[in-house]
Design a protein around this nucleic acid. Sequence first.
RNA 1: GCCGCGUUGGUCAAGGGGUUAAGACGCCUCCCUUUCACGGAGGAAUCACGGGUUCGAAUCCCGUACGUGGUACCA
Length: 509
Amino acid sequence: MLKKVRVRFAPSPTGGLHLGGVRTVLFNYLFAKQHQGDFILRIEDTDQTRYVPGAEEYIFNCLQWCGLQPDESVQHGGAYGPYRQSERKAIYSQYAKLLVTNGQAYYAFDTPEELEQMREKLKAVGSDSLQYDHHSRLNMKNSLTLSSDQTQTLIDAGTPYVIRIKINPGETVSFTDMIRGVIDFDTANVDDKVLLKADGMPTYHLAVVVDDYLMQITHAFRGEEWLPSAPVHILLWKYLFGLDAMPQWAHLPLILKPDGNGKLSKRDGDRLGFPVYAMDWADPKTGDLTKGFKEIGFLPEAFINLLAVLGWNDGTAQEIFSLNELVEKFSLERVHKAGAKFDFEKAKWFNHEWIKKLPAKNYLPQVKAILADNGISAVDESFLLAVVEMVKDRCTLLNDFYTQTVFFFQAPDTIDTASIKPKWDDNKQLFFTELIRTFQLTAFWQSADLEKEFKEIAAVNHLKPGELMMPFRIMLVGGKYGPAVFEIAAMIGKEATIRRIEHGLSLLQ
RNA sequence: GCCGCGUUGGUCAAGGGGUUAAGACGCCUCCCUUUCACGGAGGAAUCACGGGUUCGAAUCCCGUACGUGGUACCA
């Protein structure tokens, strides 16, 4: 019988949740759901020095916004907890000690200064490798160079130590990556990574392997930056649990900065003017606020969609996918090997598409909140709904709804008279005064009727309606934008329409 | 430096021995609309380079270049 699929996302709570992180979550989630499996969220907080309060809660909020909820986590519970590595400290040291006992790892007492000296020395002699490895470890202070008595004495004296994996040269470690195929590493090039730190915490290397085993992970997806350390993990699996129990690996391509080269970072977003984090992140230490996709006006549907097709496609021309469609169509085989540059323009296009596609009621609360932030209280929900539905084709970001709908709620503060004045004359002035009189008597305040009346008066005055519509629009809206004029007039009502014409006229005299 | 991974228009990308080398974003032109959008029709723009293999290479092989990741008691 096939094992139940179990995947995991394992962030460290050190700050905002990056685009790439969300995409890793997404691919994990899609794979799990497609196979009726479980998606686990594990908090990798083994680095005490980088711990940031609030970051963990923030990660959960982001996932909630994205609609990618874990099945097991510190918040959701589960049978494989605790799901926070700092709470599993005791487990890791057992395995580290076991490796030492089996001769697959060893104690090392070198101080940071000594390690630095080692690298300097290696650099000085022009060595290819500056690593702590099968070669350099012979000159260092560890249980391989020290006698067992000396080692024990140091430990008993409370000398700080780490446990390092002992990698022997002359072996080829290979594994099959679900995206990249077979990958080989020569152990001669692999260094003796620290497994257990001096503070008793495991490093990532030990922790992933132990936890993936204990949590019964079947498929492990992570960013490509982990590929070089894969041989360490494979060897650990081999030593500790056997290769048969090892999950299948998939190393996801990186998301690169749009210009220049390199991994996309928060700084690139700041520099180029777009978000990199899923949601606003306020650094508790500096107080700096970094904008998120949510707050800048993205729909979660669009955010998920654009992330999914960054490095993956279904082989057809389809680009717009709902989460359900993604669950159905996603396949790791179609994930790209190469990194993809992030294009914010395209990202916005996805949002625009989703705003058009979704019924206005789906994001009405968000729009309402945006209006409220700008001092507009849209009390009449059905009115708001109609207005939003009317203008959504011209909104790329949710925030655009403010400029596209303000004029439905209040008369424009300033109107673009400069665009009217050059062609303004007495005939037009007359036309609008007449229009006011007619409108005052209009019984059925509907766009078609208004348009008819408007054109009739124009005809009587020997004026082209086209020349009059722009001034009319500017009086109602304030500028040259917005939906059809008569629709707007119909929407805001007779009184407001007349008042805005009167006001416009007064400014043009 | 060493090790790993990668390379189809500006960007995301389909295609994987014979194609006019899809499609999308962006850009440009036109139509629709006497606004801005939406929608529609077009356009410019691509197989990193060099060698092979082959009747035929974007596609297979080998080099090179370039990019990228790692080379931490960070993940």
